[in-house]
């Protein structure tokens, strides 16, 4: 017979404190990186040849050399953009920002190690706790 583990009873203040810690973690790890625009999608600007723009202070762009053809849009696509309420200029701001999938091997390796390490730690720790659970339940 394994001695039954009797957990301490958590005080009301302790419960509130633990809840605050969890909330703080959600906001520091998840909310802040996005809110401060640190973790943003890796889009880059890629202008077609001969196309350039000058951005005014309020962010509006004045394009030169722009046409639907250099943006790779055929007449059907052009018609749909216009039906959606887009001008050539506003469509250009979307089309000229593709994703950048340059492979960074070190980054991949690092991310892989982090994910793998997380799972290994979690499974090892769980196994240890699980044995206690089974022992207390069945012995």
């Amino acid at each position: 017979m394994v001695a039954k583990y009797v957990p301490p009873v958590q005080s009301r203040a302790g419960q509130i404190f633990d809840t605050i810690v969890l909330l703080a973690l959600v906001f520091i790890a998840l909310f802040l990186p996005l809110w401060l625009s640190i973790a943003v999608p890796s889009r880059v600007e890629k202008l077609p040849e001969g196309v350039s723009y000058v951005a005014a202070e309020d962010g509006t762009r004045t394009w030169t050399g722009l046409s639907w053809e250099v943006l790779g849009q055929n007449p059907t696509m052009q018609a749909q953009w216009e039906k959606l309420g887009h001008s050539m200029d506003s469509a250009a701001e979307i089309i000229t920002q593709p994703f950048d999938y340059t492979i960074d091997y070190l980054g991949i390796a690092l991310t892989g190690v982090v994910i793998l390490g997380y799972f290994i730690f979690m499974l090892a720790m769980s196994e240890r706790e699980y044995k206690q659970v089974i022992a207390e339940k069945f012995d």
Partner: peptide
Amino acid sequence: YLGYGRQLLAMMAFY
């Protein structure tokens, strides 16, 4: 990871 690598790391850090 392709395109959202930083967000992936933020989430792993949390867990």
